[in-house]
Computed example of a mutant assay.
Amino acid sequence: MSGAPWPPLSPLQTGLHGRCPRCGQGHLFDGFLTLRPSCAACGLDYGFADPADGPAFFVMMFVCIPAVIFGLWLEMAYEPPMWVHFVTTLPLILLSCIPPLRPLKGWLVASQFFYKAEEGRRVTTQDETVVPRPLA
């Protein structure tokens, strides 16, 4: 099964839908953000995947900061009681920050597979094949 040629699938398409980056059929997630050990459809081991804090970073930079700025603006402009923040700002932050985490994590995992990303390693001269260049 693993020797079959797999067509390249878009990381955006498979990742945002939480599908296997190799076959596009199996699911990536066991729970909300927990990755499965492998794909149930094609058997791809998801051990290569390490999105780390990437999804949280993107959510904080592009969604959470504007939501917090809204809360600060509301406080500075109107000085409302605390319950107004609980009714407006808190739901805005929760509803705009939590739902994007799963699609972003799926996209990062699928991108790691698609681009064959791996942990960096130091290259030594023993790892390289040195080919002498001819002199002019």
Results as ranks from 00 to 15, higher is better:
Y46C: 15
R19Y: 07
L35R: 12
F48W: 06
M1G: 10
Y115I: 09
M61H: 13
F48I: 09
G3H: 09
R122W: 12
P5T: 04
P103C: 04
P8V: 06
A136W: 03
T14A: 10
R22A: 03
H17D: 04
P21N: 00
T89D: 14
F57I: 06
R133S: 13
L92W: 01
P103A: 00
Q126A: 02
A41P: 02
D53H: 01
L135S: 14
F58C: 14
V59F: 01
V130D: 10
G47T: 05
L72F: 09
L104I: 03
L12N: 03
G18H: 07
P55L: 07
G54D: 11
P100G: 06
G3W: 01
G54M: 08
A49P: 06
I65D: 10
P21C: 02
V130T: 13
F32E: 08
Q112V: 06
L95C: 02
S111M: 10
R102G: 04
L16I: 07
C97M: 07
L94G: 02
C20S: 10
T89V: 15
A52Y: 13
E128F: 15
I98L: 09
G31R: 13
L35Q: 09
P5C: 06
R36F: 05
P81C: 07
T124I: 02
C64K: 01
Q13R: 08
Q112G: 02
S10Q: 12
E79C: 10
P132W: 04
I69N: 02
M76E: 13
R122L: 12
D30P: 01
W83R: 05
H85G: 13
C42A: 10
L12V: 01
A4I: 11
P11E: 02
M76L: 12
A77F: 01
P134H: 12
I69P: 07
Q112L: 10
E119D: 10
P21M: 00
C64Q: 00
V130I: 14
V123E: 15
E79F: 08
G15I: 00
L9C: 11
V84L: 14
G43F: 08
T89R: 14
A56I: 11
A136T: 06
M61F: 04
G54C: 13
P100A: 05
A41N: 14
P103N: 04
P37I: 06
A77M: 05
A40Y: 05
V84A: 14
P55Q: 14
V59A: 02
D30K: 08
T34I: 11
R36C: 08
M60P: 07
L16C: 02
P134W: 05
A40K: 15
H85I: 12
R36I: 05
G54P: 04
L12S: 08
A117V: 15
S38F: 09
H27Q: 08
Y46F: 15
T129H: 09
A52V: 11
L101G: 03
F58L: 15
V109L: 08
D30L: 15
V87P: 09
E128R: 15
L9W: 10
M61A: 13
A110N: 00
T124F: 08
L74F: 08
L101E: 06
Y46S: 14
